[in-house]
């Protein structure tokens, strides 16, 4: 597609938000960055322009305006903050893709705070019933956006959602970032994807993977 998409990253000064922003800035999309820390936001903008001097990127003052102008919204805030942001952006994301990257872990990293039969993505879909929520990026560590090849193998990046076209769009976006997209299924699969990351984090700490690790399906 030639027509530029506008992607808003809400929470772009966090580890994940800034890593995703930098990775997306290599493409031709327009980026709108919202983050609560002005200095970090300015540094991020400068970093992006160093990576790609022609990047179309702008810091924007509130999640509402960012979402209104966007075609795709990436919610890169901690799970605990999602409900408040969702409430703020709800009227502006009707029929838009909203990407849930969250892993709703508890403070001790040994379980989830979401109901046993749900996930962060499904909870977000309940808060934003008219948006097309898609799960993506939750199994990718922040450092791996810059280095998506781990031990010589491109890590998988799983995508899940109920709207076929939305999943297709996000899959293309993931691919444009140099990651290997794998469509995992409907939004309910988010439950598994989020638990996969819980396990990966536990193993990363236990085995000292130094936050460079990922999932890969081996197949013929």
């Amino acid at each position: 597609m030639k027509t530029k998409s506008t992607i808003a990253i809400i929470g772009s000064t966090g580890n994940m938000g800034s890593a995703i922003a930098k990775s997306l800035a290599k493409g031709s999309n327009r980026l709108l960055l919202f983050g609560r820390e002005d200095t970090k936001l300015q540094t991020l903008k400068n970093d992006i322009h160093t990576l790609n001097s022609g990047a179309d990127v702008e810091a924007i003052g509130c999640p509402k305006d960012a979402s209104w102008e966007a075609d795709i919204v990436i919610l890169a805030v901690p799970y605990a903050a999602e409900a408040a942001v969702a409430e703020e952006i709800r009227p502006y994301v009707t029929q838009k893709i909203v990407i849930s990257i969250a892993n709703p872990m508890n403070e001790t990293f040994d379980g989830m705070v979401t109901p046993a039969d749900s996930s962060a993505a499904q909870e977000l879909q309940k808060l934003l019933p008219d948006a097309q929520v898609v799960k993506a990026f939750n199994t990718t560590y922040a450092a791996n956006f810059a280095e998506p090849v781990i031990a010589g193998v491109p890590a998988d990046a799983y995508v899940a959602g109920d709207d076929e076209k939305a999943v297709q769009t996000v899959t293309e976006l993931v691919q444009s970032m140099g990651l290997n997209p794998v469509v995992a299924g409907g939004l309910a699969v988010s439950h598994t994807l989020e638990h996969m990351q819980l396990l990966l984090i536990q193993l990363t700490v236990k085995n000292n993977y130094n936050w460079h690790a990922g999932w890969k399906i081996l197949h013929n």
């Binding site: 597609m1 530029k4 009707t94």
Partner: peptide
């Protein structure tokens, strides 16, 4: 009806559609 419409802001000189799409 409202639930089917995408609210979208476009700034001056930005494109809603480019030829060949």
């Amino acid at each position: 009806v409202k639930r089917y419409f995408v609210p979208k802001k476009l700034r001056r000189k930005q494109f809603m559609l480019e030829a060949s799409d």
